[in-house]
C-alpha cells in the first residue's frame, strides 16, 4: 500500500520535473530578457526542412480528405435534399477542424519525429556539447531557428491543406456527383466568415505548431544518448504531440465557440 503510494508519488515528481525542465528549456530558446534573435537564413533553411519537405504528404492528404468529405457529405445531405450545401460543409469542416488538426497530426509524424531524431543524434554524437564548448549557444544556433520554422510552417501548411481539400471536394461534388458548380462555390462564399472560420483556424494551427515543435525539440534534447534513447524520444514526441493537438483542439474550440 505504502509502496504503491510512494511509487505514484515518485512518478508524479518525475512528471513535474519533466514539465519544469521543458519550461526552462523553452525559456532558454526564447532567450527571455536578452532579446530573441534568430538569423533569417537559418530559419529559412529550417523552414525548408520542416515545411517544404512536409509538402507532399500535406498535399496528398488535403486533396483526399476534401474528396472524402464531399462523398460523405453528399450521402448525408442528399437524404435531406440539401446537397447544394455541400460546398459550405466541406469548407467549414476543413477550415475550422480538419485543416489545422489533420495537418498538425501529420506534422507531428513527419517533421516532429525528424526534429527529435536529429537533435537526439546531435546530442549523442556530442555535437551540441562541441558547439557549447566552442562558445556557441546551441539554444540560439540550433533550437531557436527550428522553433520559429515550425511556428511559421504549420499555419501555412494548414492553409494549403484546407485550400486543396476544398478543390478536392469541388472535384468530387461537381464532376462526379453532379452538384451544380455555382451553388458549391456560392454557398461556401455566403457562409464562410473570414474571422470566425479562417482566422480562428489559423490561430489553432499556430498554437499546435508552437506546442508540437516545443515537444519535439525538448524530447530530442532530453533523450538519453543511446540509439534506444533516441527511438524512445521519437515515439514520445509522436504520442505526446498527437495527444496535445487533440486535447488543445478541444480547449481551443470550446473557447472559440464560447459554448460555456
Amino acid at each position: 500500500m505504502i509502496n504503491t503510494l510512494a511509487q505514484t508519488g515518485a512518478r508524479c515528481l518525475l512528471v513535474c520535473q519533466l514539465i519544469g525542465r521543458s519550461g526552462v528549456f523553452l525559456i532558454n530558446i526564447l532567450g527571455w530578457g536578452k532579446g530573441f534573435k534568430a538569423p533569417c537564413h537559418r530559419v529559412i533553411k529550417q523552414i525548408h526542412h520542416v515545411g517544404v519537405l512536409s509538402l507532399p504528404i500535406i498535399v496528398v492528404a488535403g486533396i483526399f480528405v476534401g474528396m472524402v468529405l464531399a462523398l460523405q457529405g453528399y450521402s448525408i445531405l442528399s437524404s435531406y435534399g440539401s446537397q447544394e450545401a455541400i460546398g459550405q460543409m466541406v469548407a467549414l469542416s476543413l477550415l475550422r477542424e480538419f485543416g489545422p488538426v489533420v495537418t498538425a497530426l501529420l506534422f507531428v509524424g513527419r517533421a516532429g519525429s525528424a526534429l527529435t531524431a536529429e537533435i537526439g543524434l546531435m546530442k549523442t554524437t556530442e555535437q551540441l556539447s562541441a558547439m557549447e564548448i566552442m562558445g556557441v549557444d546551441p539554444f540560439k544556433r540550433v533550437f531557436s531557428p527550428r522553433l520559429w520554422a515550425g511556428v511559421i510552417s504549420l499555419p501555412l501548411l494548414a492553409t494549403l491543406f484546407s485550400l486543396l481539400g476544398i478543390f478536392g471536394g469541388a472535384f468530387v461534388a461537381v464532376n462526379l456527383l453532379g452538384v451544380y458548380e455555382g451553388s458549391y462555390w456560392a454557398n461556401m462564399q455566403g457562409s464562410v466568415l473570414f474571422f470566425d472560420d479562417v482566422i480562428k483556424g489559423l490561430i489553432k494551427a499556430l498554437v499546435f505548431a508552437f506546442v508540437i515543435t516545443w515537444i519535439a525539440l525538448f524530447h530530442g534534447w532530453n533523450a538519453r544518448p543511446t540509439s534506444e534513447g533516441i527511438s524512445q524520444a521519437t515515439t514520445a514526441t509522436v504520442v505526446q504531440g498527437s495527444l496535445a493537438v487533440l486535447g488543445l483542439d478541444f480547449i481551443l474550440t470550446a473557447v472559440m465557440l464560447g459554448g460555456f
Binding site: E126, Q127, A130, D137
Partner: peptide, 23 residues
C-alpha cells in the same frame, strides 16, 4: 554567468573522443 562562460570558452578548446564533427 553564461555570457562570461562563453567568452572564456572561446579561449579554450576541447577535442572530443569521437571528433564530434557537425554531420
Amino acid at each position: 554567468n553564461r555570457v562570461d562562460l562563453f567568452k572564456l570558452r572561446q579561449r579554450m578548446s576541447l577535442l572530443f573522443q569521437t571528433g564530434a564533427l557537425f554531420t
